[in-house]
Design a protein around this nucleic acid. Structure first.
Lengths: 221, 221
DNA sequence: GTACATAATACTGTATCCATAATTACGGAA
DNA sequence: TTCCGTAATTATGGATACAGTATTATGTAC
């Protein structure tokens, strides 16, 4: 195939590994066999190792000198640290987004929200998850702060290490939908303060759901 | 020399490059000559390239496929994005730190603040800068959120790309000191809300000083 | 049978080599 | 003289080869 985007091999490998990690094909704590993976992908260890450096910077893997590379394990403490941080960041994004969004922006956001409603109505968890991600991402884009977006995306990647989907809890999907509705209403009302507060509530509520789902996840760091 | 810490070569190289970038020996926009640097350090290009991948993930350099590596240039927009973000993050840290700090912690923080006072009294800008960094870092540690600390440190690195030291503005050092005094007072008073607000003011004030110092830094991204 | 020491194996980390793409320099034509 | 095309040079990206260390397995001694 002709390569359209002049993207380096290590980037493609990094992306593939990310997907495998998010899919939990590579589980937290797993050792990453460089030689085996390189052979699988039909490449040498050089670009693979470069990809691992990138993933390590993102916090998805840990590089132990002379001991190899391991998929990061997220502790209960990590969740307790990250969620309030995300709540603050995404809350601020929501507020800023309301302040800067045009009517067209809000209409576009509402379209995504409608997909969320539809997915919830049909109990399509995967579709709900997908629309949910897009909704949050769009808000972060509307906020217009490149660095805030970058930070949030990085933390989101780390959270995806966690296999637990709180949406599978009975009632959580409906609760999440209700919170989204409230955020969307704040956007339509043009109320940045309310949007920020509601988004914070939404994130912290997600944290609670996750904790209640698996309270034993309190493994030490 | 015997290597005490089993730190990999690429890590040492990354740290050296960071220092050279922060010292502006490698200026924003500069092309990084891999071969030349590898020869300078007496190493091969392999660990150097791995180090560059790490620096790229940190945002200190930009890797353009097939075009080489360049030291990141920070735009006015970047500053306008990062400082409010830092203000929010460090503000939250200050609040959390007050909530969790023991009297001993506050005393230790006050010791650092006293070094700041002394440096300011003697107009030792470098010493002030040093104590200032330690003060902020200690507060972030007291907040006890590993991920928040990590995010802040990463953003701080990016800000250090900027050559401009706002402290060299007439009066800024005194102003910064005053703001620090106020923050320190909030710590002693055990007032987290005030600590958070004052720390935000402090950061945003630093932003203002930087902008006033070099308004022409408004180069497009 | 267990524990410790030693040797073998395997993986990480680094260096060297090669291919490919980009930049630049040179030459010819308009 | 200037612009375009082509060739040469140079740097990046990837593969392979090698050295050093950690782990594991095996053997011996207690």
């Amino acid at each position: 195939m002709t390569r359209i985007a002049p993207t380096a091999l290590y980037q493609e490998v990094a992306e593939r590994l990310r997907q495998r990690i998010f899919a939990h094909e590579l589980m937290p704590g797993d050792w990453i066999d460089e030689k085996k993976l390189a052979d699988q992908y039909g490449i040498s260890r050089t670009p693979l190792r470069e990809a691992l450096k990138v993933l390590a910077s993102e916090g998805l893997v840990e590089l132990k000198p002379r001991r190899g590379c391991y998929v990061t394990e997220i502790s209960r403490q990590d969740l307790d640290d990250i969620f309030p941080l995300m709540a603050m960041l995404e809350g601020r994004c929501a507020g800023d987004a309301v302040r800067q969004a045009s009517p067209a922006d809000i209409a576009a956001l509402d379209d995504i929200h409608k997909r969320l409603e539809a997915a919830a109505h049909d109990s399509r968890i995967d579709a709900f998850f997908e629309a949910n991600q897009e909704f949050h991402f769009r808000i972060q884009e509307l906020a217009g702060n490149r660095w805030m977006l970058s930070v949030i995306q990085d933390l989101r990647k780390v959270l995806k290490l966690c296999r637990l989907h709180s949406l599978s809890i009975e009632g959580r999907l409906q609760q999440s939908l209700d919170e989204h509705r409230a955020v969307m209403a704040a956007f339509k009302a043009g109320d940045p303060v309310k949007a920020e507060a509601l988004m914070q509530v939404h994130l912290l509520s997600g944290h609670d759901a996750l904790i209640k789902m698996d309270p034993k996840a309190a493994k030490a760091a």
